[in-house]
Design a protein around this nucleic acid. Structure first.
Length: 263
DNA sequence: AGTACCACCTGACGGC
DNA sequence: TGCCGTCAGGTGGTAC
């Protein structure tokens, strides 16, 4: 689930649960999700720190430690989530790291496929530079978005999914944005003029904000959304035509050939 | 600069 | 029932 809207929902969840609680201890069930630091360092840096604020950058969620002691960096891969629970016995399956908080509750980082990451981060700006993260898709403005796309070669879908252009869009929401903008996923970026790119920016914002309002739950999204109809042969939610599946930069791509004709 | 492919992982599903 | 290939919303590295 974890694209920008999903991570935004997790951020809200954390805000209502573990935020402002203090970490007593940290259990690591699987070291393979820990990046950049050792298990010991992770545990030491978290110990007795308050989870004082949260910040999202693209698909990354950062939890500030004691306002100034760096950040706990969380990435959810394809199958990650957080679970706040009282009893250790309720620890979900596939929990890789679990914080024990001073109020007795636990915050579990769950990641079935282990494609996510847990780390300690100093400056967020530095982290973003090191990982080549472009501006967050919801925090950037129209002019910056247009500027970052202009002059690029290749198709629009690969560009939007490229985290160094704008960060936060994954396979599913990129398809969603392209249907909203009525653009074919392979449409060359170079063929889109400034007006078209601005239009795309507006659709991106609309799709992301709407998805967050629906708490990233497809069943609460507008009828015009592709998300609940992401499979071959389904009816396009806009025109009723048949959704087609193609491969774009190695990813399954669903689109409506009549709403999104080849340029 | 961009793309194509592989690797990292686990689990669900369909075909035989 | 069981085995097997394929696929799944992530990123990062390498080779072209």
């Amino acid at each position: 689930m974890p694209e920008l809207p999903d991570v935004a929902v997790v951020k809200t969840y954390l805000g209502r649960t573990a935020l402002h609680k203090r970490v007593q201890s940290t259990r690591v069930f699987d070291e393979s999700v820990i990046k950049d630091v050792t298990r010991r360092t992770l545990q030491r840096r978290l110990k007795n720190r308050e989870l004082s604020s949260t910040r999202r950058w693209g698909k990354h969620l950062f939890v500030e430690l004691d306002s100034g002691d760096g950040w706990l960096g969380l990435h959810f891969g394809m199958t990650g989530l957080l679970q706040y629970h009282k009893d250790a016995a309720d620890t979900p399956e596939h929990t890789r790291v679990r914080l024990h908080l001073s109020n007795g509750y636990h915050l579990s980082y769950v990641c079935r496929r282990k494609l996510g990451a847990v780390r300690i981060v100093g400056e967020l700006k530095t982290f973003a530079e090191e990982h080549d993260l472009g501006p967050d898709a919801l925090e950037t403005d129209r002019a910056t978005f247009v500027e970052r796309l202009q002059g690029r070669r290749g198709g629009i879908k690969s560009a939007l999914m490229n985290q160094s252009v704008v960060s936060g869009l994954g396979n599913v929401y990129t398809d969603e944005i392209l249907l909203a903008a009525r653009r074919h996923p392979d449409h060359p970026v170079a063929d889109l003029n400034e007006d078209a790119l601005e239009e795309l920016f507006d659709k991106m914002k609309y799709v992301l904000e709407t998805a967050i309002e629906a708490k990233a739950d497809p069943s609460d999204m507008p009828d015009t959304f592709l998300l609940p109809h992401r499979s071959e042969g389904e009816a396009c939610p806009v025109c009723g035509g048949e959704i087609e599946k193609i491969t774009v930069s190695g990813r399954s791509t669903y689109y409506c050939p009549s709403c999104q004709p080849k340029p």
